[in-house]
Write a protein that binds this DNA or RNA. Structure first.
Lengths: 140, 140
DNA sequence: CATTAAATTGAGACATAGTCGCATTAAAAG
DNA sequence: CTTTTAATGCGACTATGTCTCAATTTAATG
């Protein structure tokens, strides 16, 4: 059904659903966790795909626009993404030792942020909270 | 007094307080807002400094270690920093239109995060909350 | 199914960001 | 002032992202 969504998006924009685009979406859908374009490209290469770096970089904005993936974080030109796949918004705790990523969601936190935005006359669109530290296993 | 702090730090580590390091610290201290190494380097170049990119990149870890600057955010090798200068921890709202950065601090938010960490058996060391959206002026 | 117009592709040049080794220079200790 | 040691700039190198252009693929049409 993700592929369907992509197909529809591509159609409405007068674009074409190519094999390469399909391959890229497929690779994203079958992998868990965060990814960045370079890593995705390398992974596909390793698996024998003939996709080019340019195609990977060119496909990501399309997947973003149709809501199949989301930008988790970005600095300048460097971004990390994750597939959406029906997930609701959540934030992250990242273990600085083992790299484990814990996803969490707190309605209270969301509400509090709305209040803080209001106080500053700021219209919040999206946010990104990353808590860095040590997971249960690593903090012993 | 920032320079004093740096001098002391450098001394205890058996390093040297060079003219270049001093220049770099000075440039950081006299500029407001966030910065990244490349931008800092270009800015100094433009002002006629003969400092090299390598020196800028090599000095930043020192300033971090002695607490004169802090990492605001990082993805892979790309980081943004800000001078500390007695500021307490705060988070950011960033206008996606004009780039304005609003700094805010909420004790409630901090407390809530501690609770959330506890729930996940996670030892939070530092965090980074960025709310993206539109500032009062731009959201009209 | 063949044709064709338009979009997409890969290759590789280019740009930017960050790191590293090494010969030279500068700091600070004696 | 000499010596020791760290710091510097240069330039090579890696990694990441963007762009152009000729060749290819898609999908609409005949």
């Amino acid at each position: 059904m993700e592929r369907q969504k992509f197909k529809e998006y591509v159609a409405t924009k007068g674009l074409k659903l190519t094999k390469k685009r399909d391959d890229i979406l497929d690779e994203i859908l079958t992998t868990e966790g965060h990814f960045d374009p370079e890593e995705l490209f390398i992974r596909m290469k390793t698996k024998g795909s003939k996709v080019s770096r340019a195609s990977v970089y060119r496909t990501i904005p399309l997947l973003l626009e149709c809501g199949l993936i989301e930008e988790v974080e970005r600095i300048d030109k460097h971004a990390h993404y994750e597939k959406v796949l029906g997930k609701q918004h959540h934030d992250h705790m990242i273990c600085m030792k083992c790299g484990k990523v814990i996803e969490f969601f707190s309605p209270t936190l969301e509400m509090l942020q709305s209040e803080l935005c209001q106080k500053e006359s700021f219209t919040g669109i999206r946010h990104n909270l990353e808590i860095l530290g040590y997971c249960g296993r690593c903090s012993k």
